[in-house]
Design a protein around this nucleic acid. Structure first.
Lengths: 263, 263
DNA sequence: CGGCCGGTTGAGGACCGTCAACTGGCGTGG
DNA sequence: CCACGCCAGTTGACGGTCCTCAACCGGCCG
């Protein structure tokens, strides 16, 4: 697991800790900051059932959402009416930090599994950003990381089918590992093959065949929603996976720059 | 030109006005704001020759760049070493607003034509954001628009070759129209077929054949770097182009919300 | 029990990439 | 001055990848 972050795998399944773990990928989180973050997230926690939309395209901006548990996807419809998944929101992810700036959502967000989500209102966020400059910076870094991931998806979807699937699985492993939801052995993958297909710009049939090939070649195992990483190095080199685009601190040995926010 | 913005086409070729025109797509720009913006942009103007890199992947963050004249592309290399263009920066575009937040650039930017670029330093931007809240908000809106465009590229690159090229040309027409660099008749397209190919995730040969088809079908003309929009409605319907994702004010009849920045 | 959803498999063909070659224009250098 | 090389554009043949259409299976739930 040469390129996976060096953070320890999950010692606790406590979903409320995941945002803090994610943000710790960008800058250290002190105990005081941890409890401030906990207060922010505890205020308005919602349970969302799989398949329920959280954001509708064209809708007015609502709260900022932080995923505590479960997965969601951001999607648009192509001219053919087909669903295109443009991003996956995993536990710990801040979904739509800049939502308050928007007039109308340009894409929808839908729960892919049962979820727990923390909603942050405008006033609460404004107060938080005044009081917690370093966490605020980490919030923005997470947004930058999301934009970088977006670019990576664009690049990845020009590759062959095996490379696409392998690359997405590597990315998911790294992102889940960072919040303690993956180990060297694998992780829970609550996606259907239709979801995977729409995220990789492929048909579900071809996704099915490609997964079979990856299984046949001993790279992965996939059963009962559990993805097993049987040959990480093989998967990584197949995908040409370089986690630098995730902008995680533990990926690189650089010292963390303690810079103030320009904005 | 049903969906093109209602702004008047270029009455002036003055490149220094383009950022203001672009920002006016998000919120009104008063004369005082215009001159403040002019002062910000006049401070450090650089000339860049075609082919010269403005940002190198992995490099340390520099200034924020605003394109005054000419085109640049943001690109990454795939595992096969091939160049993938993930964004095009046109005159008026703010390139990398959040550059001060980054530790290392995750993609490179290279001039595609001779350019004039305004560089904004950290201190100048900080002062500007304190003094010009509405322009600052428009800066952020431009960043949101760029992210939305990024998602659209992801969706577009799953379509067929003609749809991809047509969609990209529609987008470029709309974006250039907004800064007065396109008319109903067409616009200057300083891209080689290699550039177009790398932006659409295709080979240059296929791009060549696809352009030929679009010409044969009377949708476009392309000679001497001039793209002629011979059948806008045809191009638009072929691409399934809906400019809502550009988040331009003049595309939609909504009143502009005068909201303060949460951050 | 029937329907639906997710997964699986097969046959056929369209689309697009690869390889190869050739053109014309332009700048450079002999 | 011409020769040469390079670059952008163009065209053709061929093959592989991936999509389309079609069918089938098992499990779950109404």
């Amino acid at each position: 697991m040469a390129t996976l972050p060096s953070a320890k795998p999950a010692s606790s399944g406590d979903a409320a800790r995941r945002p803090a773990r994610k943000l710790a990928q960008y800058a250290p989180v002190s105990p005081a900051e941890r409890s401030a973050l906990d207060r922010l997230l505890r205020a308005k926690v919602q349970r969302i059932a799989a398949g329920v939309p959280l954001v509708e395209v064209g809708g007015a901006p609502g709260d900022i959402l932080v995923v505590l548990d479960g997965w969601a996807c951001r999607h648009r419809s192509g001219p053919n009416g087909r669903r295109h998944i443009v991003a996956l929101h995993l536990p710990g992810d801040i979904c739509d930090l800049s939502v308050f700036l928007m007039r109308a959502a340009d894409s929808s967000v839908t729960a892919l599994s049962d979820m727990r989500v923390a909603a942050i209102g405008r006033a609460a966020l404004a107060a938080f950003t005044r009081e917690q400059p370093r966490l605020t910076q980490s919030f923005w870094w997470d947004a930058l990381s999301a934009a970088s991931i977006q670019r990576q998806w664009l690049v990845r979807n020009t590759l062959g089918a095996r490379e696409r699937i392998a690359g997405l699985l590597c990315e998911l492993a790294a992102r889940l590992y960072a919040v303690g939801l993956a180990t060297d052995a694998g992780f829970a993958l609550p996606l259907t093959q239709y979801d995977l297909a729409d995220a990789c710009g492929m048909t579900s049939e071809h996704t099915n065949r490609t997964l079979r090939e990856l299984r046949r070649d001993g790279l992965i195992g996939l059963e009962d929603g559990q993805l097993r990483l049987l040959d990480w190095d093989g998967l990584e080199s197949l995908a040409g996976f370089d986690p630098a685009y995730l902008h995680f601190r533990t990926m690189r040995s650089e010292p963390v720059v303690e810079a103030g926010l320009p904005i």
